[in-house]
Design a protein around this nucleic acid. Structure first.
Lengths: 215, 215
DNA sequence: TAGATTGTTAATCGATTAACAATC
DNA sequence: TAGATTGTTAATCGATTAACAATC
């Protein structure tokens, strides 16, 4: 089934939230939901929900609404939660370890396959069932296991060379927690980068707090 | 100086990135930059940069461009990086600890003042210079120290009651890493929530990887 | 002064919301 | 059938881009 071409990023970023709310509704025992009621629960408009969903297909039924289970599973397969793309974590510091232990990679379409670090005190330790490998093994590992995505939890200074070699080794996407900004050339190559700039997020919060106080 | 009223959230979310790039330029020894050159480095349009900055004031000079140091510090004070709002972390699990150790709260307008947990094995341990306190002390602590913001790194199930009491105790903003979705009523009360839904971010990445592969 | 580059207005583009015919 | 609610088209709104006069 060829999905509608070019769905806007705004729509895509709402999908995981729909998915979460539908999962909740399932747990609450709902079997059907109207765009109207979902919109109230989520704090957006019914119109937007219908528009968003219709980017991917007509999942509802006039006069009835949407079947919760069905819509949930449709959204899941649209996003690829049933996939199992191999992922590596590069950088087993605080953040890397916390992600390894906290993120449910399986539920989001991935499979955590290896963790790398360059510190002798960390290499060889076990995190979430995986033994931390030496970054010097990164190249061999990638040639053999072809990870699709790398989680970048390394210091900024280390990022450029690591990214460059990972791209050469076939990594297609990055979940970027480092303070490194990917240059435009990677986007042109079709490399996908999902940035999680925690510092930016916190500064935004600071601005909003400050502005609220100034009113 | 009364800032221009209601700057859109899209603009606000770009400010930290401008700030970062300007900091880099300072380190590289730049003293001036044109919107044109900055736009190329950042991968956006010069027009957008000028529009964004002019939401807050005319920081440039015709024929010259922008003074890097000056613009950097202006943006800093617009965002409030010079503030020192007290912040508490609620939940000293992997993520809470990693944030305590990794985030430069001081550089983003905050001051980490306390960390709470409910697990006896964690209470009393030291993280980043702070002794983890028992959540039972949360109320007293807030009454005495009036934290402005709380970082939520607790399980979802624990969130509703913690949030409710923190709001009653005067907390104005949340940096929310829990899977809890704040209900609309808090927004109506003027509570500010900056969500960091890591699962959503990873699912978005999955979708993008999947779509790229399907082309 | 001439050249460069801003600040700002106008034009375009895209995303959200509203409306309603189709249909379960 | 009547009522409800979708899918979809049209209208609105806001954000981005383009253009250019102002001015350093």
């Amino acid at each position: 089934m060829p999905k509608h071409e070019h769905v806007s990023i705004s729509v895509i970023r709402r999908l995981p939230r729909y998915y979460r709310f539908l999962g909740d509704l399932m747990k609450l025992g709902f079997s059907r939901i109207s765009s109207q009621e979902l919109s109230q629960r989520m704090g957006l408009t019914a119109s937007q929900i219908r528009q968003d969903l219709n980017c991917f297909g007509g999942f509802g039924q006039q006069g009835y609404g949407y079947n919760v289970d069905m819509l949930h599973s449709e959204l899941g397969s649209i996003m690829g939660t049933n996939m199992s793309y191999p992922v590596i974590i590069v950088g087993a510091g605080n953040i890397g370890r916390a992600l390894a232990m906290n993120i449910n990679f399986g539920a989001t379409g991935f499979r955590l396959s290896a963790i790398f670090d360059n510190s002798p005190s960390v290499i060889g330790t076990t995190i979430s069932g995986l033994t931390v490998m030496d970054v010097s093994e990164l190249e061999n590992y990638c040639r053999e296991n072809r990870p699709k995505v790398a989680v970048l939890t390394i210091p900024r200074a280390a990022a450029p060379s690591v990214v460059s070699s990972l791209v050469d080794l076939g990594v297609k996407g990055f979940w970027n927690f480092s303070h490194y900004d990917f240059s435009v050339k990677y986007k042109e190559k079709g490399i996908i980068v999902e940035n999680v700039h925690l510092g930016d997020s916190l500064m935004t919060l600071c601005y909003l707090i400050k502005s609220a106080g100034e009113e």
